[in-house]
Amino acid sequence: MAKRIDVSGLTAYYGSHKAIDDISMTVEPRSVTAFIGPSGCGKSTFLRTLNRMHEVTPGGRVEGKVLLDDEDLYGHGIDPVSVRREVGMVFQRPNPFPTMSIFDNVAAGLRLNGSYKKSELADVVEKSLKGANLWNEVKDRLNKPGSGLSGGQQQRLCIARAIAVEPNVLLMDEPCSALDPISTLAIEDLIGELKERFTIVIVTHNMQQAARVSDRTAFFNLSAVGQPGKLIEIDETERIFSNPSVQATEDYISGRFG
């Protein structure tokens, strides 16, 4: 069940440092939204506010609203742990649990949440690995450590781990930046399949990737180093790349930035 995200007036701080300022946008369900923008403009920070991971950082603080199908994630009495079960995340660097086997890595979310039936576990693992296009490569060595896979396989393992808990939204922070073109393609194809079931937000520095995989693209920028990042515009990917309404977006996309 993909869900819609409605962000309004979101500001995030690291201690006293304001990292992003007053961001409002809507992320449509069953679609891929790409975030692009220069380094340090707060893409990762914003992404992490969407599943309340921002406050895990010491000093991390958020103001504003994030509605997930009309429920405010930052509302009173909302449990961040439950939020993270609904909004999954894939990180820039593949980070499988080193003490666990491939099987256990995928099962980790269910096991650690304590909400699973033993008989279903193997099915869920198989389904998730298939969903992440990894099943054929690892089905013979499910009991081998996950850290023994190649980088691209590890990243797909992390995606399998994230989708095994059936989140409504999947956040991906530069999921391909450490991967070769072939693994990247595999993951891009995967994103195309996953958007049938999930709402996907992806941060990328690769314009072609944003153009290839996303339906909508958001461009972030910051006026100067040390200033908070701002959302410049969000629109259909096609329009952003052909005919953006803000000059800065066009400059950035065509490489005339700075």
Binding site: V56, V81, R84, G88, N95, P98, T99, N113, A162
Partner: peptide
């Protein structure tokens, strides 16, 4: 990263410490 990976799966902090 391992702590964050676990937390992002919706695992409570004490279980993250215990199991990861």
């Amino acid at each position: 990263e391992l702590r964050e990976a676990s937390l992002a799966l919706g695992v409570p902090k004490w279980r993250t410490i215990l199991k990861v």
